[in-house]
Measured scan of single mutants.
Amino acid sequence: SKIRITWGDKTWEWDGDDEEVWKRILEWARNLGDEELWRHVKEWVDK
């Protein structure tokens, strides 16, 4: 399956939905430097 994140007018996609993928997404969000996006992603990961 895919994980799709839409933020503003951008959309990103990742293949898979296991823990490793979420770790990569969390790292990606942090590297993007958008605090609010990172917080949202972290909330999803922690669920």
Rank of each mutant, 00 (worst) to 15 (best):
A29P: 00
W44F: 15
R39G: 07
K2H: 09
E27K: 05
D9G: 06
D18K: 07
E13M: 04
A29I: 03
E43V: 05
I25F: 03
T6E: 10
E20S: 15
H40C: 09
E36I: 04
E27H: 09
W7F: 07
H40S: 15
K42A: 12
A29L: 03
L32V: 15
K10F: 09
E19W: 09
K23N: 10
D17F: 08
R39T: 09
N31T: 14
D15G: 06
R30S: 12
E13I: 09
D17S: 14
D18W: 15
D15T: 10
T6N: 08
W14F: 10
G8D: 09
E35Q: 07
N31C: 07
A29R: 00
V41L: 11
D46Y: 05
W7E: 01
N31R: 11
E36W: 08
E27Y: 06
W22G: 03
E19Y: 14
G33T: 05
W14P: 01
R4Y: 14
E27F: 07
G16H: 15
D15V: 11
E36G: 04
V21R: 02
R4E: 08
A29H: 01
K2T: 09
I25G: 01
E20D: 14
V21I: 10
K23C: 04
E20N: 13
E36F: 05
H40F: 15
A29S: 04
I3C: 03
W38P: 01
E19M: 14
I3R: 02
I5G: 00
D15A: 11
T6H: 10
E27M: 07
K10V: 10
R39Q: 13
I25M: 06
R24G: 08
G33V: 05
S1E: 13
L32N: 11
A29D: 00
D34S: 06
E27L: 11
L26P: 00
E27N: 09
E36H: 11
E19I: 15
L32E: 15
K23W: 08
N31Q: 12
D9C: 04
R39F: 08
E35L: 07
L26F: 06
D34E: 05
K23L: 07
G16A: 15
G16Y: 15
E43C: 13
L37H: 02
V45K: 11
L26T: 07
D9P: 04
W14K: 00
E35K: 07
D34N: 09
L26C: 07
T11H: 08
L32R: 08
D17L: 09
R30H: 13
E13C: 04
K23D: 13
W14G: 03
R4T: 12
D17H: 10
W22L: 06
W14L: 04
R30C: 06
A29T: 03
R30L: 14
V41K: 00
T11S: 12
E19A: 14
L26S: 04
D34Y: 07
R39D: 09
S1Y: 12
I5K: 00
I25H: 00
D15K: 04
H40N: 09
E36N: 08
D46E: 14
S1A: 15
E27V: 08
D15Q: 13
I25D: 00
I5R: 00
K2V: 10
R24A: 12
N31Y: 11
W28V: 02
G33L: 07
L32W: 14
K2S: 10
L37F: 15
R4W: 09
W44V: 09
I25L: 06
D15S: 11
R4M: 13
W14V: 03
W22A: 03
D34I: 10
L37K: 01
L26I: 09
D17R: 08
A29M: 03
D34G: 06
N31K: 13
E20R: 10
R39E: 10
L32G: 06
D34F: 07
S1P: 15
E20M: 13
E19K: 15
R4S: 13
E27S: 09
D9H: 03
R24F: 09
V21N: 05
E27R: 04
E43K: 06
D17Q: 10
T6I: 12
D18C: 03
S1K: 15
L26G: 03
G8W: 13
W7G: 00
D46N: 07
K47R: 08
I25K: 00
G8N: 11
K47L: 12
L32D: 06
D34L: 06
E27Q: 12
W22S: 03
G16C: 11
E43G: 06
W22Y: 14
R30T: 09
R4L: 13
R30W: 15
T11G: 03
K47P: 03
D9I: 01
E13W: 06
L32C: 07
S1R: 13
E43I: 07
R30E: 07
V21E: 02
A29E: 00
V41Q: 00
D46G: 06
S1F: 14
D9Y: 02
D17A: 14
E36P: 05
T11A: 12
E13A: 04
K2P: 08
W7K: 03
V45D: 02
D18N: 15
K47F: 06
A29V: 05
R39V: 08
A29N: 00
W28R: 00
K42Y: 10
G33N: 11
G16T: 13
D17C: 15
E43L: 06
D34T: 03
W12S: 03
W38K: 08
W7M: 05
E13N: 02
G16P: 11
K10W: 09
G8K: 09
I5P: 00
D46R: 04
W14N: 01
D34C: 09
V41M: 04
V41S: 00
W44Y: 09
I5Q: 00
W14S: 02
V41H: 00
V41P: 00
W22M: 06
E43P: 01
V41Y: 02
V45Y: 15
D17G: 15
L37N: 01
H40M: 14
W12G: 04
L26R: 03
V45S: 12
D34P: 04
E43F: 07
K10A: 12
D17M: 09
D34W: 10
H40I: 12
D17E: 13
W28D: 01
E20V: 11
D46W: 04
L26M: 10
E35S: 07
K23M: 11
W12K: 04
K42E: 08
W28H: 02
I5T: 01
G33H: 08
G33I: 06
W38G: 04
E35D: 13
K42P: 00
D18I: 14
D46V: 06
E19N: 15
N31E: 14
E19H: 15
E36M: 06
I5C: 05
K10C: 08
T11R: 03
A29C: 06
R24I: 13
D46A: 11
W38R: 05
D46C: 06
T11D: 05
